[in-house]
């Protein structure tokens, strides 16, 4: 009798624990107050376009009931913005975007922020890597003259990119140099705070080539002010970039695609992650997002939290090898 009671009690407890456990697993926590997206770069670059795109679709498709604001915090290859949201650990109303720079920053040994300090929520897109030149530049004004300059006069190249040394855009150009057998360390480069600033420097002739996301320069390419000489994609991308050849077409064996996603501050709970993961999963299926992605030249590639964490882990090793191979890391 007594043991029966005990057993019932025990079973009851089990059921309660089970239900609670289930609830923890299933119930998503909702953000309270304004959602603040902090952009890890200045206005006009790829991160900026992505973050503002996210905001537009979150609001227009009513994916969140809250007010959403965006703010630029350029610097440190993103580290300044990530540090800014990490001042609010565990607060799911703060979001930022991430790109391979989050790995290279930490691999190169200066940045105080690693991806494990943050909470990566989802991977959203990957970029079309473009090699932009100024059509008025006397030395480099086409894919052909770029390759020629790489081989003959690498010291005369002025490479500019956003937004940290040794990051994905540096790797993108280094991979091109490597493909034609030139050491990237011979090529002078300058780092700018955002893709927008790189674009301006290229327009003004202060740099003569840039590895950059196509979406950042597409309008200028169309207007003929800048020339996207070639792209590191598998196939031609169509749209505004339909007339841009791939490196493969030009006989250079090179493909490269930096990924981008969204992250929150460190210490988010499973429920908080789930809420955002669900929202972003919905976001990528919305026609508004698909239309925007086409306009901004993003390739939609959704990965949830777990997959993103796994991807970041394997990509970190991959970037380590690449950086070593390119001579950017000892």
């Amino acid at each position: 009798m007594f043991s029966n009671m005990l057993r019932t009690c025990f079973a009851g407890l089990l059921v309660i624990t089970g239900i609670t456990a289930l609830q923890i697993d299933a119930v998503a926590e909702e953000p309270k107050g304004t959602i603040k997206i902090i952009i890890p770069a200045g206005p006009g670059g790829a991160n900026d376009l992505l973050a503002r795109g996210i905001k537009d679709v979150l609001v227009s498709e009513k994916l969140v009931p809250n007010t959403v604001t965006v703010k630029n915090r350029p610097g440190g290859g993103g580290a300044v913005a990530w540090a800014a949201i990490n001042r609010h650990k565990g607060d799911m109303t703060y979001l930022s975007t991430f790109m391979p720079g989050i790995l290279t920053n930490d691999l190169l040994g200066a940045s105080p922020i690693k991806y494990t300090d943050m909470t990566p929520i989802a991977t959203l897109v990957f970029d079309n890597a473009c090699y932009a030149v100024n059509p008025k530049d006397p030395l480099i004004n086409s894919a052909k003259s770029l390759l020629k300059a790489l081989k003959n006069t690498p010291e005369k190249i002025r490479l500019g990119f956003a937004n940290a040394a040794g990051n994905h855009w540096h790797v993108a150009f280094a991979s091109l140099a490597d493909a034609v057998g030139v050491d990237i360390r011979k090529i002078p480069y300058t780092v700018f705070g955002s893709g927008g600033k790189v674009r301006t420097a290229l327009l003004g002739g202060h740099i003569n080539v840039s590895s950059i996301a196509f979406g950042v320069v597409s309008k200028f390419h169309e207007a003929g002010k800048l020339l996207c000489s070639a792209m590191a994609t598998e196939k031609r991308i169509g749209g505004r970039g339909a007339n841009v050849p791939t490196w493969k077409e030009l006989g250079v064996n090179l493909t490269y695609a930096p990924w981008r996603g969204v992250l929150g501050p460190g210490n988010l709970t499973a429920g908080q992650i789930k809420y955002w993961e669900d929202r972003f999963r919905q976001l990528t299926t919305k026609p508004a997002w698909i239309k925007l992605a086409k306009r901004k030249s993003w390739n939609i590639n959704f990965l949830g939290h777990k997959e993103t964490m796994a991807m970041l882990k394997s990509e970190r090793e991959l970037y380590k090898t690449t950086l070593k191979k390119l001579g950017l890391l000892k």
């Binding site: 190169l108 200066a110 940045s111 040394a165 040794g166 890391l329």
Partner: peptide
């Protein structure tokens, strides 16, 4: 101040 491996001429 930590200096990263790839750095500009003046450094941080």
């Amino acid at each position: 101040i930590k200096v990263p491996l790839v750095v500009d001429f003046l450094g941080p």
